[in-house]
Design a protein around this nucleic acid. Structure first.
Length: 475
DNA sequence: TGAAATGTTGGGGCG
DNA sequence: ACGCCCCAACATTTC
């Protein structure tokens, strides 16, 4: 007696533990796990280079966990799925939900097609603590401010689902592998740009679990104080793992609560609320699908960005002459990651001091970040620009010198990524342009030669931003 | 999850 | 001893 066959369509849930769709397929019968590189989505929504590097290695890890049974395809998922259902005589298809506007539209259509073809189809929530459609204000409206969204909307709603364990035993269907090879998906860049990534990261479920336990044993107990120091690994660094679903937020949420084993701990609450910000980004994207491309606050449609190409390029390359900005941009390029505090600093500098449209920054991050995520990236850039929901007010302009002196007191972070400044004394590490000539020459720094002169005067560009924003506000 | 400008207070140096 | 000034330290307001 053969079991019914079902497909598990993996997308952003590249794990075996706490995977509701996989569990459903196991309960249903024998399983064919598949991954489809979706070529039907628009170019600008295709994952960037760094993200694809991660995806490649994550798929490799998942395939290993599935004993090599993962089948890889490329194309329009609707066509691929209907064809596979037919070829494998599958009677069930299961997946975990995605929440990006284009994915929702695609999946809704596919679900109908497969149902019409007589398949059992079910989708599940595997990547959010609270799904966007379930959180509403008392009057039925949509929250626009984080704190009431999180405190009233989320924390007073039903608790997040407790994580499931791995399926006891996965029975794989005895079918041919009709897919292509992982390599043929072409996710790896031909440049050697990504070579260094693997020194910093281990994509896959195992890497995610070890990041989580490392965070719990080393950093979580002092999270609120340490998370802002970029030279210290005081954050969880789970973001790329969460993005690809190698770990669910539910697993992180409950692991932290269990580890602290006491309510009302400020470090615990602080970390959980960061997971809350991730939820809020998805919530905003769901209810405002144009978030990645349109100003949430439409007053900004009239904003006169300067958009100077040479300045934008200097920012991308980490050659602005502002040490902590350059260090951040170089960390991004070299490691595919940037510390959260520094993301705010470089973002504020680009958008406010240089007056470059936040969407240019969004695009660069999209291509460079291993944790590039449509929801978080869009919501965070709009937050920085002041054009978003519950955004930073227009007058909040980070001073990169003060931020450096506050959060990187001895310049350890700067010196890691800007080695040409390695011998600068603490006093001038964040403002080499103010250093007396003898100190510069003693440190081997020649401004304009081996380290750039600052491309913007911080005081004047701050005033320029205030004027520009004041003008927009008046419109 | 800002920074700068402006205002207030109080200790200490000094004539 | 007293008034005056300076200025650090902190608080408040403004952008």
């Amino acid at each position: 007696m053969t079991q019914p066959v079902s497909l598990v369509w993996f997308r952003q849930d590249l794990r075996v533990k706490d995977n509701p769709a996989l569990q459903a397929a196991v309960d249903f019968g024998s399983v064919v796990p598949i991954y489809i590189k979706d070529t039907s989505i628009k170019n600008e929504e295709q994952p960037g280079g760094a993200s694809n590097w991660w995806l490649h290695h994550s798929l490799q890890a998942l395939n290993k966990r599935l004993n090599g049974h993962l089948q890889f395809f490329e194309g329009d998922p609707e066509l691929v799925l209907t064809e596979l259902v037919d070829k494998f005589s599958a009677t069930g298809v299961f997946w975990n939900r995605c929440y990006e506007p284009a994915a929702i539209e695609r999946d809704t259509r596919i679900k109908q097609t497969l149902k019409d073809a007589g398949c059992a189809v079910a989708s599940f929530n595997a990547s959010l603590l609270w799904e966007p459609m379930s959180i509403r204000k008392q009057d039925g409206g949509v929250y626009r401010v984080f704190t009431p969204y999180y405190r009233k909307g989320c924390l007073q709603a039903a608790s997040p689902r407790y994580p499931m364990s791995s399926p006891d035993r996965i029975t794989y269907s005895k079918v041919d592998n009709l897919g292509t090879s992982l390599e043929k998906l072409g996710l790896l860049s031909t440049l050697n740009w990504a070579d260094d990534f693997s020194n910093h990261w281990q994509p896959g479920e195992e890497g995610a679990a070890s990041k989580l336990s490392e965070f719990i044993s080393n950093a979580a107990s002092d999270y609120e104080d340490q998370r802002n120091i970029p030279s210290v690994k005081g954050t969880s660094r789970l973001s790329p793992h969460l993005h690809f679903g190698e770990i669910s937020p539910n697993q992180a949420w409950y692991a932290l609560i269990d580890a602290f084993n006491q309510p009302d701990n400020k470090h615990l609450d602080c970390y959980l609320s960061e997971l809350g910000w991730r939820e809020f980004s998805y919530y905003l994207l769901f209810h405002f699908p144009t978030l990645p491309t349109e100003n949430f606050n439409q007053q900004f449609n009239h904003f006169s960005w300067r958009n100077k190409d040479d300045e934008f390029t200097a920012w991308c390359k980490g050659k602005t002459g502002i040490p902590i900005v350059d260090a951040g941009m170089r960390e991004l390029w070299q490691t595919g990651y940037m510390h959260n505090r520094v993301r705010m600093i470089v973002g504020s500098f680009l958008v406010k001091n240089l007056l470059v449209d936040w969407r240019k920054g969004e695009r660069w991050f999209w291509d460079c970040l291993l944790d590039a995520d449509r929801a978080s990236n869009a919501a965070s850039w709009q937050w920085v620009a002041g054009s978003g929901a519950d955004a930073a007010p227009y007058f909040r302009i980070f001073n990169p010198v003060l931020q450096g002196e506050k959060f990187d007191k001895h310049g350890e972070y700067v010196k890691t990524y800007c080695p040409e400044l390695a011998n600068m004394p603490d006093k001038y590490i964040h403002k080499p342009w103010d250093a007396p000539q003898n100190i510069l020459s003693h440190a081997g720094v020649v401004l304009g030669k081996n380290y750039p002169n600052p491309i913007a005067d911080l005081k004047a560009s701050r005033q320029r931003a205030l004027d520009a924003y004041a003008e927009t506000k008046g419109k």
